[in-house]
Amino acid sequence: MSNRAFAPLIFICALPEALPLPVAGVSAIIGIPLMIISGQLMLGFSKPWLPKWIANRSLKRKDFEKIIKKILHYLQKCERVIRPRWRFVTSPLAQRLLGLLFLVLAFVIALPIPFGNLPPAVAIAIISLGIIEQDGVVIVLGVLAACAILVIMASAIAALLSAALVHLGIGDR
C-alpha cells in the first residue's frame, strides 16, 4: 500500500480509543504508535514504519473482536454518506498538514486525562476515514471537530492549572 497505508494504519490505531469499550490502559500504548505514524506522515515519508518493539505488540483477540463488531455497525452507516469529493483536501501537502494535526491529537490521547482520549480519537478516525475514501468534506468536518476538541481541552487544562496555582497560593486570586 506504500504511502496509502498511513490513513488505514492511523484509523486502526485510533479505533480502540474512539470506541467506548472497557479496554483499560490503552491510551499511552495507542498514543505512541499514533505519534510515530503521524510524524512520518507529516514529514512526508513514503511508507509508514514502526519500531519492532511496537510493531510486534498486539491487542488481545477478545478485545480486537469487540472493536471489529462495534465498528462494522458504524462503517455500514458511513458507507451511505462518504464518497470521493473535494479531492484537493487529500493532496500530499494537505496530508502532511493533517499529519501535524494527528500528531497533536495523538499527544492528547497519550496524556493521562480521564475520558480525554475519546474525543481526539474520534476526530482522528473521522479524518482518516475521509483520507481513505478521499472525501474532503469528511476531512474538513473532522478537522473542525478536532479544532473544537483541542480548544475545549486546552481551556479545561488551563482552568485546572489556574485553580491549582491559586490553591497553592502561587497564582492570582
Rank of each mutant, 00 (worst) to 15 (best):
A24C: 00
A110W: 15
V143F: 02
L93Y: 13
Q40N: 11
A145D: 05
A164S: 14
M153L: 14
P51C: 04
L101V: 11
E65W: 02
L165M: 14
V140G: 08
V89N: 10
A159G: 07
G142I: 12
Y74N: 03
G39E: 02
I152W: 02
I36L: 06
L97Y: 07
L97E: 06
E133K: 11
L98F: 11
L43N: 10
P84F: 12
R85C: 14
G44S: 08
L19D: 00
L72W: 11
K52C: 02
V122E: 09
Q134E: 14
A24K: 05
I67P: 04
V26R: 03
L168M: 10
P33C: 06
P16V: 08
F88A: 07
V137Q: 06
R85F: 11
P33L: 09
G142V: 11
A146K: 03
R80S: 14
G25H: 07
A55P: 07
I152N: 02
L101G: 05
K69R: 08
V151T: 03
A148H: 11
L141N: 05
N3V: 09
Q76D: 09
S46E: 13
A123M: 05
Q40S: 08
A106D: 02
A18F: 02
N3Q: 09
G171V: 12
F45V: 12
E65I: 10
A125E: 15
P33Y: 01
L41R: 01
K77F: 03
R87K: 15
G136N: 06
A7M: 14
L103Y: 03
A94R: 15
L141M: 10
K62Y: 13
P51M: 06
R80C: 09
V143G: 02
L101D: 04
I54M: 14
V138Q: 06
A145L: 15
P16L: 05
L19C: 00
L150W: 05
V122S: 07
G169P: 05
I131E: 08
L34A: 11
R85K: 15
L103M: 09
G130C: 08
K70E: 13
A154K: 00
W49K: 03
S2H: 09
P48V: 04
V89M: 15
E79M: 12
V143T: 09
L93E: 14
A159Q: 10
I30P: 00
I36H: 00
R61N: 13
A110C: 12
N56R: 12
L111T: 01
L141Y: 06
T90Y: 08
I157C: 06
I82V: 15
L160S: 13
G169L: 05
P84N: 12
D135T: 07
I12T: 06
V23R: 02
L59D: 00
L19I: 01
I124G: 00
G44P: 07
P120W: 09
T90W: 06
F45A: 15
L118Y: 05
V104G: 08
